[in-house]
Computed example of a mutant assay.
Amino acid sequence: MKIKQVEIFAVNLPLIDPFIISYATYPNIQSIIVKMTTECGVVGWGESVPDEHITGETPHSTYAMLKNTLAPLMIGQNPMEFEKIHELMDKKVHRAPAAKAAIDIACFDAVGKKLGVPVYQLIGGRYHEKFPVTHVLSIDEPEKMAEEATQKMEEGYTSFKMKVGQDVLSDVKRIKAVRERVGEEIAIRVDVNQGWENSANTLSAIRHLEALGIDWLEQPVAQDDIDAMVEIKSKSTIPVMIDEGIRDMYNMREIIAKRAADKVNIKLMKCGGIYPAMKLANMAEMAGMECQIGSMVESSIGSAAGFHVGFSKKIIKSVELTGPVKFSKDPGDLKESYVIPNIQLNERPGLGVSVDEAILAELTQYSDLVE
C-alpha cells in the first residue's frame, strides 16, 4: 500500500460558545484537515490544530508545512511503516509536531481501514471500555462558572476542568464558587495554562485550595520552567499535572529525572501524533506517572485519534477531548459516541469516524492537492 495523494483543507470549526483560557480567547478553532488517499483507494483522515503559544506553529505555517514539505514527502510511502514515516518527517523538519500529527493520524486511519480493524487494535488493543467525559469551564465570573457547572450537572456530567490563570485571588474565588455549587462528590480539575507564572504565586494559591478536594492542578507555571514544577510538587498536597511543559521525549526524560510532576497530559498536537504519544505513555508508565490524553480542541478526526490512544493504555486514567461537543458544526460524527457522562468508542475500522465532505467543504477556507 502506497500513498498516492494528500489533500489539505484549512478549516474554521465554529464553536457554540467562545473558548476562553489564560492566554487567549477563541471564537472558533482553526484546523487543518488532511485527506490521504492510497493507490488502492483507501482514504485516511488526519487533523492538525496548532497553537503558537505551545509549539510555535500557526495555522498558516502548519498549512504551508504540510503543502510544501510533509505531504510531498509522503507520496509513494507505505503508511503502515509508522516508524519510518516519522523518521522521514523528523529528518526533513525539526519539531513542527502539530503538522506531523496530521500525517500520522491519516496513516493510522488508512491502515486501520485497510486491515479492517479500529486504530486501538494497531497500538495494543482496547483496554478501557469507557471514560467519563469532563466538561471544560472557560474562564468567566465566579457565579457564571458555578451556574454553568450546575447546568452541566443536570445534563449528567460528573467531572469538570476549570480554566483559570488570570490572577490568584480571582481564580481562587472562581474555584470556591464552583465547589460550593456542585458539592464534594463532583470531580474538579484546575487548569492554569501557565497563568500563575511562577512557583511563588502558585504556592500562594495552593494554600487556599488544599481544603477544596481538587483532583489535580495543571500547568500553573511557564511551560519551560521545570524546576518550578519540581518545587511546587514538593510543597503541594494537591497532585500536579504537567501539560504545556511536556511536548516530546526529551521533555519527558527531564520530567522523570527531576520528578517534576505526578501526572502528564499527553496531546497528539504537542508530540506529533499517535505513534509518538504511545512512546510518551510508555515512558510515563515506566516512571509510575499517570497519564491523561488532552486536546487542542480538535474536530471528530483529531479527537478520535486521541481517544484511540487513551482507550488502549492502562496508564492513561483520564481523557479530555471535548471538541465534538463544543462545535456547532463538525465534519465528523464522533459526537454520537458521547453518551453523557461517558464516551464509548465504536468498533468501526480506522478512527471510526465518518466524514461528511459536504460539511467539510462548507467549513473550508482554502485547500490544495499534493500528488
Rank of each mutant, 00 (worst) to 15 (best):
H94I: 09
D224Q: 11
I343H: 08
N201L: 05
V309Q: 06
D368R: 02
L122Q: 09
V297Q: 12
G56S: 10
A261Q: 06
A106G: 03
K130N: 09
S22P: 06
A98K: 03
V111R: 11
L268P: 05
K314L: 05
C291P: 07
S295D: 15
I188W: 03
V192F: 08
G294T: 03
S204W: 13
Y120P: 06
I186E: 00
E7S: 11
P220Y: 11
V117I: 14
V230L: 14
G310R: 09
S31L: 08
L15S: 03
R253E: 13
S234V: 00
L88W: 15
R207Q: 13
Y127L: 02
E7T: 00
Q77L: 15
H53D: 13
V353Y: 07
A96H: 13
V164T: 10
I315S: 06
K92Y: 04
Y120E: 06
D90I: 03
I85Y: 12
S170C: 05
F108I: 03
Q121Y: 10
I315W: 12
V221N: 13
S367A: 15
L169N: 13
F131W: 01
I238L: 13
K91L: 15
H60L: 10
C40V: 01
V264N: 06
R259F: 00
A261W: 07
E244H: 04
W45D: 01
I188N: 04
Q151L: 08
E143L: 11
S159P: 09
I242H: 08
E52K: 11
I238A: 10
G306Q: 04
F82N: 03
F160C: 01
K163Q: 09
I266E: 05
T322G: 12
E185G: 01
V240N: 03
D224H: 14
D191N: 10
F131S: 06
S31A: 15
S354G: 07
E155S: 00
V309S: 05
E184W: 08
L209Y: 05
I246Y: 05
I359Y: 13
R207V: 00
L351W: 02
I188P: 05
M89W: 09
P276N: 14
G245M: 06
L122V: 06
V240K: 03
L203T: 07
I20G: 02
V325C: 11
K173I: 00
T237C: 11
V93Y: 02
G165Q: 04
M289P: 08
Q292S: 09
R207Y: 03
M89N: 06
A64R: 08
E155I: 02
E143G: 14
P220L: 12
S300G: 12
R174A: 08
I214Y: 12
V49E: 03
M269Y: 04
Q344D: 04
K270P: 02
N28K: 10
P97E: 01
Q344R: 14
M283I: 09
V168I: 11
D262N: 14
A24I: 00
Q77C: 15
D90T: 00
M278E: 15
Y275T: 02
D330M: 09
M229T: 00
G183A: 01
D227T: 00
I75K: 07
F131L: 03
K329C: 01
P97H: 11
A99C: 03
I186A: 08
E357Y: 14
R179E: 05
I340N: 10
D225Q: 07
H208D: 14
S318P: 01
V43W: 02
L88R: 06
P18W: 08
V111E: 09
M286R: 04
K335P: 01
V6T: 06
I316C: 14
P276R: 10
